[in-house]
C-alpha cells in the first residue's frame, strides 16, 4: 500500500480526456460525488456545482464537505490530474495532508486509472463556485490530522472484500459497490476507531447522525429478489411501493442515471454476499 505517497504520471496508465464524455459522466454519478459535495438542499442542475457545505455528524465530530468545484482559489480548479488521482487513491492533498476518511478514498482507491481519468475530465467541465470551504468540527484526538496516517495503515486494503466474482455482471457489481458507489461506508458497521468491520460487511449499522439505523443488505436480512433490488435502485420503489427516503433517495437519483445492467450487477453482488445475521432489534 502506498498510502501517503504522491502519484506521478508514471503511476497512472490513463490521462484525463482519454475516455468519452458520456462514460465520464456515469462515473461521476456512480461515485456519488454530488450527493455530498453539492450545496445543502441542491437539486437538479445545481447538483453539478460542487460548492460543499453539507454537514455530516459522526461519533468523531462533524465533517463539512469542502468545495471541490473548478474554482481556482477555493475549489480544485488549480489541481493537476496527478493531484486528483493522489487524493482519490491515497487520500492525500496536493499539500501532502491526509484527508479524513469521511471522504471515501478507501473505496475510491479501487477505481481504475481509466475511471479516475474520466472522472477528472468530467469534473473539469463543471461550474466554479466561490464559497470557501468550512473547516471540520472535530473533537480531540480526532482533530489531529496526522493520526489519520495510522488509521490508513490499519484500514486501507488493496483487495476487494467479496473474493470471488466469476461472472462479468458480478465483477461489475463488485466494482460499482466496493469502489465507485462506496455502499459499505454506510451499510457496514465500524469499530471504535472508525474502521469498517469486514466480518459484518453490509450487515447494517447505526446511522452516523445518531438517529435510527442503516439496514443490513446481505441475504441474511434482505429477502428481495434481484429484480426488486435493481428496480429499487432505479426508481426508489420498494417491493411494497413505498419509496426510498433520507440519504438513500439521493443514492437512487444517482444510480437511476446508470444503465439497467449496472443496477442488475449491483443486485447480483448483493445476492452473492455472505449472509450477515441481523442483530437484535432489526438491522
Amino acid at each position: 500500500m502506498t498510502g501517503g505517497q504522491r502519484l506521478s504520471s508514471d503511476d497512472l496508465s490513463a490521462a484525463a480526456g482519454d475516455g468519452d464524455a458520456a462514460a465520464a459522466e456515469q462515473v461521476f454519478w456512480a461515485a456519488g460525488c454530488a450527493s455530498c459535495h453539492a450545496a445543502p438542499e441542491a437539486e437538479g442542475d445545481a447538483l453539478l456545482t460542487l460548492a460543499g457545505g453539507q454537514r455530516f455528524p459522526s461519533d468523531f465530530g462533524t465533517f463539512v464537505a469542502p468545495n471541490i468545484s473548478t474554482d481556482q482559489q477555493v475549489g480544485i480548479g488549480g489541481w493537476s490530474f496527478e493531484d486528483f488521482a493522489t487524493a482519490l487513491r491515497n487520500g492525500v492533498s496536493p499539500q501532502g495532508r491526509h484527508y479524513y476518511p469521511a471522504f471515501p478514498y478507501p473505496s475510491y482507491a479501487h477505481m481504475t486509472d481509466a475511471d479516475i481519468a474520466d472522472l477528472w475530465a468530467f469534473m473539469r467541465t463543471l461550474p466554479a463556485d466561490q464559497t470557501p470551504s468550512a473547516g471540520h468540527e472535530l473533537s480531540f484526538p480526532f482533530s489531529i490530522r496526522r493520526s489519520v496516517a495510522v488509521w490508513k495503515w490499519m484500514n486501507l486494503d488493496d483487495e476487494f472484500v467479496l473474493g470471488a466474482a466469476d461472472t462479468e455482471s458480478l465483477a461489475r457489481g463488485r466494482y460499482l459497490v466496493e469502489a465507485l458507489s462506496h455502499c459499505a461506508e454506510c451499510h457496514t458497521p465500524r469499530n471504535a476507531f472508525g474502521g469498517l468491520v469486514k466480518g459484518r460487511w453490509m450487515g447494517g449499522a447505526p446511522n452516523p447522525s445518531g438517529k435510527g439505523s442503516i439496514p443490513n443488505i446481505t441475504p441474511g436480512a434482505l429477502d428481495w429478489s434481484a429484480t426488486d433490488i435493481a428496480y429499487y435502485l432505479g426508481t426508489g420503489f420498494t417491493p411494497d411501493y413505498d419509496s426510498a427516503g433520507g440519504h438513500m433517495a439521493r443514492v437512487v437519483q444517482n444510480l437511476a442515471r446508470l444503465p439497467d445492467g449496472d443496477r442488475q450487477a449491483i443486485a447480483a453482488y448483493l445476492k452473492a454476499l455472505p449472509p450477515v445475521a441481523p442483530l437484535d432489534g432489526g438491522g
Binding site: 438542499e41 437539486e43 446511522n207 438517529k211 435510527g212 439505523s213 442503516i214 439496514p215 432505479g234 426508481t235 426508489g236 420503489f237 413505498d242 419509496s243 426510498a244 427516503g245 433520507g246 440519504h247 438513500m248 433517495a249 439521493r250 437512487v252 437519483q253 437511476a256 432489526g282
Partner: peptide, 21 residues
C-alpha cells in the same frame, strides 16, 4: 414514466419524511 414518478416521490421523502429505520 413510472421511474419519473418514483423520482418525484423520492425528492419529497428525502426532504420532508423521517427515514424509516
Amino acid at each position: 414514466a413510472v421511474g419519473a414518478v418514483g423520482k418525484a416521490c423520492g425528492a419529497c421523502h428525502d426532504a420532508h419524511r423521517q427515514p424509516s429505520s
